[in-house]
């Protein structure tokens, strides 16, 4: 469905960005995306580990515009298992590495400014740091997935506070992944192994769980990321079910997005046009749904215009949706 409509809200599929490519204008297993004020998006390509012992050029941070202009990439050789991106108010980019247990900082041009993080399970130590998100005061929340807790740091890496432990009760975690901070400074965590999203106050008081009380086909399966739009609707990347679940601010489910990229992105089009046999092959296929649907969605970001952007690791692609506010149902007797 190119247009998804419920209760006064509509999401229109806009376009796709990117293609599967190990360098340049494409992505390799994108794991994290973050939008950025001037219509730009940073895309983290996780890539493969290859033969080992050599820098894998497919692991990188790419910078693109929402209109699919390739600005450049950086970070080659800086990380082993890059996991998540966040941008602070100075437009510096931060990237976690869940193997080296570090947070790496870049300036807006991609110059490496430094890194911090010590392995371990003591206060302030990191064990497989995964999702990260800044609050409005430039404090960084880090999902410390191996320690099953959330830690809050200054952007320089000074420890502020922590909450959480292993388990499945409220406030406990099982290998958590993505994280976001909403306009009211509340914190949402994709509690991956517990098949839910938990919402907390900025101090870590438990508020709400998403996704646990629904009928089975609507439940979350290993959610990887979460984002909140300007109206407070909550978007959860339902990684295991390959969809995005949308909830209202009270935690009621609204609808799901499954991916709609029947059209090629600009970069993808160039590839198809240079391969006449590929064009023919596409024409031979009747059911093209596997082209359009999310193939292992990993992360989500929402820009200042409430455009919703989802990354898919298997396709090396981003899908962009636009939310229409105050939408009136059309006349159905067409």
């Amino acid at each position: 469905m190119l247009t998804t409509t419920v209760q006064g809200r509509t999401w229109n599929f806009s376009h796709a960005i990117g293609r599967n490519a190990a360098a340049g204008n494409g992505f390799t297993q994108p794991m994290s995306i973050v939008s950025f004020k001037d219509d730009s998006i940073y895309v983290l390509s996780r890539g493969g580990d290859g033969a080992g012992g050599v820098v894998q050029p497919n692991k990188r941070i790419g910078k693109v515009t929402i209109d699919e202009e390739f600005i450049g990439d950086f970070g080659h050789g800086d990380f082993t298992w890059p996991s998540s991106l966040a941008v602070d108010s100075r437009s510096h980019v931060y990237c976690t590495d869940e193997h080296t247990n570090t947070v790496i900082e870049y300036d807006p041009e991609g110059k490496k400014m430094g890194e911090w993080g010590d392995p371990g399970n003591k206060e302030g130590n990191l064990n497989m740091p995964s999702g990260i998100a800044f609050d409005s005061s430039d404090n960084l929340f880090v999902v410390d997935s191996g320690n099953n807790r959330i830690q809050k740091f200054t952007r320089e890496g000074e420890f502020i506070l922590t909450w959480g432990e292993a388990g499945s009760s409220e406030g406990q975690f099982s290998d958590p992944w993505g994280i976001t901070v909403d306009q009211n400074s509340n914190v949402y965590v994709a509690d991956w192994g517990n098949n839910r999203v938990q919402k907390f106050t900025p101090e870590g008081e438990f508020l709400l769980s998403y996704g646990v009380t629904f009928p089975e086909d609507m439940r979350l399966n290993h959610p990887s990321d979460v984002a909140v739009d300007s109206e407070g609707d909550v978007y959860v990347v339902d990684w295991g079910n390959k969809r995005v679940q949308i909830f209202d601010p009270e935690g009621e489910i609204l609808t799901s997005l499954y991916g709609d990229a029947y059209e090629f992105s600009q970069w993808a089009k160039e590839v198809v046009e240079s391969n006449p046999d590929a064009l023919k092959a596409y024409r031979r296929v009747e059911d093209k749904s596997s082209l359009a649907t999310f193939e292992r969605p990993t992360s989500i970001t929402i820009d200042s215009q409430d455009r919703i952007i989802v990354s898919e690791s298997t396709r090396g692609r981003l899908q962009v949706y636009a939310k229409e506010k105050d939408y009136l149902d059309p006349q159905y007797n067409l």
Partner: peptide
């Protein structure tokens, strides 16, 4: 096996 979409530009289809 049915016709399969090509590997370009988004990776493998089933």
């Amino acid at each position: 096996i049915g016709a399969k979409m090509p590997r370009y530009p988004y990776g493998r289809h089933p």
